[in-house]
Each structure stands twice: as C-alpha cells, then as structure tokens.
C-alpha cells in the first residue's frame, strides 16, 4: 500500500480522530430513546457519520488511482505573528485600553510581512488608530476602555 494523497489521508485521519473524541465525550450525556432523545443522541449520530467519512476519505487516499498530493509546509512565523498579536490584543485591551493595544496589534501583525518597514508601519498605525477612535468609539459609540485604567 502506498500513500499517494498525503493531504486527503491526513484530512481523513483528523476527521476520524475528532469523531472518536466527540463520541467518547458524548457517552457522558444520556442517549435516551429514539422517541425521546437525550442530549447524547445527536452527537453520537454526528460522530459516527464523521468517523465513516474519515475512513472513506483515508481509503480513497491510498487507492492506486488517487492523485499524488503532498502536504504543504507551514509558514510558522507569519502565523505566530498574526494569531499572537490577536491574543496579546485580547490580553492588553481591558488593562491598557484601546489605543495602546491597537498599536501593539497593528505593529505586531505588520511584523508578519517580509516587507516590513518601521516608517510605513508607524504612519499607518497612527492613521488607523485615529480612524478607529473617530469611527467606532466617538462615531457609533461602541463601548471600549480607551486609555489605561490607572489614569
């Protein structure tokens, strides 16, 4: 047996693993009868469905007629900058207010680009923060802590 379609094999395997985990978890909830279903009935149906799909997809990936496809390599640095700056924004917002957290978010996410320059980033960051304050905080009145709470 030869793995021709790595992409489909991994996708199918992930479906299967999720299905098994959800099925195990749903055992904690009562299934009930088919006329009076408990909270555990539908999750079990879904996980069986997903599990079967996962197996079929995996089987398709090792067929001799399957297209040859490899996994794409992950570009980790941009992913970490983007996801990380969102998480840091979430952490800073209630503590340091919108202005500072936005600056961190905008500069942090700009670092993900390999064409990053400090000058361009700082100018666009200032413009965007002023726009956000004008449009959302003072314009349509969304509730935000604007400045650090110590002040």
């Amino acid at each position: 047996m030869q793995i021709r379609d790595q992409r489909a094999l991994v996708s199918g395997a992930i479906f299967l693993v999720i299905a098994v985990v959800v099925f195990m978890m749903s055992l904690e909830y009562e299934a009930g009868t088919s006329a009076r279903m408990g909270p555990g009935y539908f999750p079990r149906i879904l996980s069986v469905g997903l599990g079967v799909l996962g197996l079929v997809i995996m089987a398709g990936a090792v067929k001799r007629t399957a297209p040859v496809e490899r996994l794409e390599p992950w570009t980790l640095a941009p992913l970490l900058w983007i996801a990380g700056s969102v998480a840091v924004f979430a952490f800073l917002l209630p503590r340091l207010g919108l202005v500072i957290s936005l600056a961190v978010l905008l500069i942090g996410s700009s670092l993900a680009s390999h064409e990053f320059t400090w000058r361009g980033t700082i100018v666009s960051t200032v413009v965007l923060i002023v726009t956000a304050l004008g449009a959302f905080v003072y314009g349509i009145g969304l509730q935000f802590p604007v400045w650090p709470t110590i002040f």
């Binding site: 969102v86 979430a90 980033t121 965007l128 959302f136 935000f144």
Partner: peptide, 17 residues
C-alpha cells in the same frame, strides 16, 4: 502590507463588540 493590519484591526474591534 498596509492593508492587512487594517483588516485585522476592524476584525478585532468587531469581535470584541
């Protein structure tokens, strides 16, 4: 490189709201 930080900002403000 100027566009996507703006998209991120709008998204984050939207999500928080």
């Amino acid at each position: 490189r100027f566009l996507y930080p703006a998209i991120m900002m709008f998204c984050c403000i939207g999500i928080y709201s």
